[in-house]
Design a protein around this nucleic acid. Structure first.
Lengths: 216, 216
DNA sequence: GTTAAGATAGTAAGTAATTACTTGCTTGAT
DNA sequence: ATCAAGCAAGTAATTACTTACTATCTTAAC
């Protein structure tokens, strides 16, 4: 009795419509400029009229907030999973990097939306969610870098904050590159090449021959 | 006789108004979200009415194009100057990096505008200027990295393309960091710390004691 | 030099298009 | 039968751009 049939497209319960709305926005952000995502465009993508959106969200900002909550939840879950699967800090850093790139390659509009929200003037809810996400993300990286230094995997004199900034910047660089090429898929390939340089930059011994990781 | 008096604020010749318009946009982009830069906001900043803008520019897009031309000219000039002042490739790379960060710290809205233009859907003139700028920028970096490898300053096995991507990404990371902190000035300080890691990542010998650069 | 003509740069008040959001009514699942 | 969920057609605000008119500078005849 609690079961719901999805035979009919219309008159879905609110929870599912909210989830589908988030999906629509993420899809649209991948195809066009996030700033061109109007409520009309979202509704059209969902096969609804524009007004119907406001049965589930009070404002457009609330929609964006839901999207950012979705991103934060999914991304951090993937990061934590990747972290826990690896024993050493440096391997965990690489796993996080690759899963992050994989996430972003699968949802190319997400980093653009995040960057866009960061530039919003006031103190909006979506902006706060982005800053919180990056804060939590940075804390995990910070801890891993410190652990790596303590275990001797990373250079003991390494500037931890700078290493975290560069880690995030490395991802940003790949995003920008995919923006220029118009192809998000090559991010996955370029990611390994770029991270190799990063690893050399933070590693204890920038070995010429010593293989550091084995996850290839 | 050909001299012009600037006593009166109004009725300036077209060339000067165009230059002042670019200045206004660059200023506004530093203070607010570039997407909120309306023609009304530009005019207000210049002390003009909105309609007066269209005496000098046919469309808003033409204004953005002028801004991007201004950016490309100034940034590449600084890059070339920094390049030529240094003898070795690695020193040139660091000089470019620092002068770029200095430029961006002085005009924090510029990288945001560039990133925004890259996301525009169609084939607009401002977008083309950005891609061209990055292309020329990348070519200079590419050449320097290759030179550095040939001279033995950089790792012979270094992935040149990845090194260029990471170089640009490093700057993006600092921009994002300044967006989070709300302070563009600390970019100049963080730049050295972050570039130190990058240099280790691309350098031939990631020496613990050997001083590579001397420009401090 | 003075001054009238002509071009340039400004203003104020439009305009059509687009935006997020609302309202009154209808549909459909339970 | 009830009520959440949907539709169609609004609304006010904002946008880039236009139009009709005015002020200012330049220039050349006198």
């Amino acid at each position: 009795m609690g079961e719901r049939m999805t035979a009919s497209v219309k008159h879905l319960p609110a929870d599912e419509r909210r989830a589908l709305t988030v999906d629509a926005v993420v899809e649209l952000a991948a195809e066009q400029n996030p700033r061109d995502i109007t409520t009309a465009a979202i509704a059209k993508r969902m096969g609804l009229t524009q007004g119907a959106l406001f049965r589930h969200f009070p404002t457009k900002e609330a929609i964006l907030q839901a999207v950012m909550a979705w991103v934060a939840e999914r991304l951090l879950a993937r990061v934590d999973k990747a972290m826990q699967a690896e024993a050493s800090p440096i391997a965990a850093l690489e796993a996080i990097f690759l899963t992050h790139i994989d996430f972003v390659a699968g949802h190319p509009g997400v980093p653009r939306m995040m960057f866009g929200e960061l530039q919003v003037a006031g103190e909006t809810a979506p902006k706060r969610m982005v800053t919180t996400l990056i804060k939590h993300y940075g804390e995990r990286l910070h801890k891993l870098v410190e652990d790596g230094k303590a275990k001797g995997e990373l250079d003991a004199a390494l500037d931890t904050e700078a290493a975290v900034t560069l880690f995030i910047g490395t991802i940003q660089g790949l995003v920008m590159q995919s923006l220029l090429s118009g192809d998000a898929d090559n991010m996955r390939h370029d990611a390994r090449r770029v991270f190799a340089i990063y690893r050399r930059g933070v590693g204890r011994v920038a070995g010429q021959g010593a293989p550091v990781g084995s996850s290839a």
